[in-house]
């Protein structure tokens, strides 16, 4: 009994961690590297989920439909960056209001195009059993994919030319530009990557949500809280932040219900920021330097 309880909570934590990190990762890149607060981030996730669900219902296997969701969202992001976002660099708050406008347009646009609901994607893989109990194997897959995405990002930002240029631009844009880095292009690619990540997250989450135009709204708060609690380091911060918040959220939800879990998550975010005013990774980076 005790063991199954531990397994229950572990499963919940994995799923909570996976959801938080997936919801946050695209936002973390765009906010962390470009100082753009993308309030349309939830709608990017929604577009990824729709593209995935649409491909899936057209007969594409889920494993392929998810990257398609990422790509479609990436292209949408790229177009937006060229048309709108690039005018908003260095205008943190303006970017918020503009992307709020974009989120209204996307959510309502999707409603007009696809109607108030779309057929759901079934959850793949089925249950795994332990004793009398069982849980969805897909929860493990979600958490693993979340970590996989972060590792991929780590690779991109450590080993590619773009990644080095991007980090240079982030640290000191003018110097980077004077050394021949095309910072405009760097921003464009960064926004594209952030959008792809949001789209892939939407694809991965699509089997466990209702495919409705407002689905992004349920992720925007969690995404924001995770990103801000993470602090300045995008990858390490997101992992730590997702971990700390799910460690609080999962057991409280299990023992005291989803409502208490929800409140506990928000309270945990408040307390962490109060104790570490630069976010979790801000504390670590200070220690490291």
């Amino acid at each position: 009994m005790a063991l199954t309880n531990v397994l229950d909570i572990t499963g919940l934590m994995l799923s909570s961690f996976g959801t938080l990190v997936l919801a946050a990762v695209g936002l973390a890149i765009i906010f962390g590297m470009m100082r753009i607060i993308n309030l349309a981030h939830g709608e990017f996730i929604m577009i990824g989920a729709y593209a995935t669900a649409f491909s899936f219902s057209a007969g594409v296997p889920l494993a392929l439909a998810i990257p398609i969701g990422g790509l479609v969202t990436g292209i949408v992001g790229l177009v937006l960056e060229r048309l709108i976002i690039r005018h908003l660099y260095d205008r943190l708050v303006d970017s918020m209001v503009a992307t709020w406008g974009i989120s209204l347009i996307f959510a309502q646009g999707m409603l007009i195009i696809a109607g108030p609901s779309f057929s759901d994607v079934p959850t793949p893989l089925g249950p795994i059993s332990y004793g009398d109990f069982s849980m969805s194997l897909y929860r493990v897959v979600l958490a693993a994919s979340a970590i996989g995405l972060l590792i991929a990002l780590y690779g991109i930002y450590t080993y590619t030319t773009y990644g080095r240029h991007a980090r240079a631009t982030m640290q000191d844009e003018e110097t980077a530009r004077s050394l021949g880095v095309n910072t405009d292009r760097i921003y464009m690619i960064t926004f594209f990557i952030g959008s792809v990540m949001a789209g892939i997250a939407g694809g991965l989450l699509s089997p466990i949500v209702s495919i409705v135009p407002t689905l992004g709204q349920s992720y925007i708060i969690e995404a924001f809280v995770t990103v801000i609690v993470a602090g300045p380091s995008v990858i390490l911060g997101t992992i730590l932040s997702g971990f700390s918040l799910s460690v609080v959220n999962a057991p409280v939800s299990q023992w005291a219900g989803s409502f208490a879990g929800r409140v506990a998550l928000l309270v945990a975010a408040i307390v962490i920021i109060r104790l570490l005013p630069e976010g979790i990774s801000g504390y670590w980076m200070e220690g490291g330097e």
Partner: peptide
């Protein structure tokens, strides 16, 4: 008996609890 807030979409803990109660 369990009450789920309207903005919660991950029902893992509820499912665990139901399995527990059988």
């Amino acid at each position: 008996e369990e009450f789920i807030p309207l903005d919660v979409s991950d029902h893992g803990s509820t499912i665990n609890n139901i399995q527990d109660a059988d």
